[in-house]
């Protein structure tokens, strides 16, 4: 490969005709432009290749979990695998979304929530749980996408899997609003309430608390009688909530 950091050869001393040196310069510029264009094309191809591999590997991980989930009979093991599958799916949804948009630096949280809810609704197979969304368009840095997606996924899974024992109908609400220096994400349900749902999924709660710490976000779980309301307050650009 050509070393692009090297400056072009200096013009030789002497006095060639003005027309000649101008043609030389133009040739140099054309050559370097070609080299840079080719280098950029190579890098772009490499980026696509890496993106492709990440997506295929995520697909492989999710298929492995699905296949094992079909094999085991123990309800506790099934629930654990199901939980991991939800988490991998959340990360997969992030990755699909990030490279769908033209801006790979920013992540549209509301679009992600719409995708995730559609998936959770379908896989829960519960027609008796009504979902409502009120989502303002909110972008975060791509580096925050995966941890934030995991937190939201965990809360949604909790609400759909634990708040409504078989036969109990109910509602789940997801709202995202933007204040001056923070985003507010609310997930609430009118199900059986916190003591039961939190004790059922202690690992999920740990994940939420750890990731909120990483995101410098505030996590509040309130008794909504009936049900639970969880509010995540995420500072914009490092401001404290």
């Amino acid at each position: 490969m050509t070393d692009l950091s090297q400056p072009p050869e200096p013009e030789p001393r002497g006095d060639p005709s003005p027309g000649q040196s101008r043609r030389d310069l133009e040739q140099l510029v054309a050559d370097r432009t070609l080299e840079l264009t080719q280098a950029l094309e190579q890098k772009t191809a490499l980026l696509h290749e890496v993106d492709h591999r990440v997506k295929n590997n995520l697909q492989l991980i999710s298929s492995l979990l699905l296949l094992q989930n079909r094999r085991v009979a123990d309800p506790a093991v099934k629930a654990a695998l199901r939980g991991m599958l939800d988490r991998v799916n959340a990360i997969a949804t992030v990755h699909r979304r990030l490279f769908q948009s033209d801006d790979v630096e920013r992540f549209d949280v509301s679009a992600f929530v719409r995708d995730l809810v559609a998936d959770v609704v379908g896989s829960a197979g519960r027609d008796d749980i009504a979902f409502s969304l009120d989502l303002e368009r909110v972008d975060v840095a791509a580096s925050k996408a995966a941890p934030l997606a995991l937190v939201i996924s965990e809360l949604l899974s909790n609400a759909t899997r634990h708040a409504f024992p078989e036969g109990r109908p109910g509602r789940v609400f997801v709202g995202i609003t933007r204040n001056e220096d923070a985003f507010r994400i609310e997930i609430s349900d009118d199900g059986v309430g916190m003591p039961t749902s939190a004790s059922v999924n202690g690992f999920g709660l740990t994940i939420i608390q750890l990731l909120c710490q990483q995101l410098k976000a505030r996590f509040e779980a309130l008794d909504a009688s009936p049900g639970t309301r969880v509010v995540i307050t995420l500072p914009v650009n490092g401001a404290r909530p």
């Binding site: 999710s62 997969a92 699909r96 379908g122 896989s123």
Partner: peptide
């Protein structure tokens, strides 16, 4: 259907 897909996405 874009990969990574979910089981539910494929069924739907």
């Amino acid at each position: 259907i874009g990969k990574p897909y979910s089981g539910n996405g494929v069924r739907s």
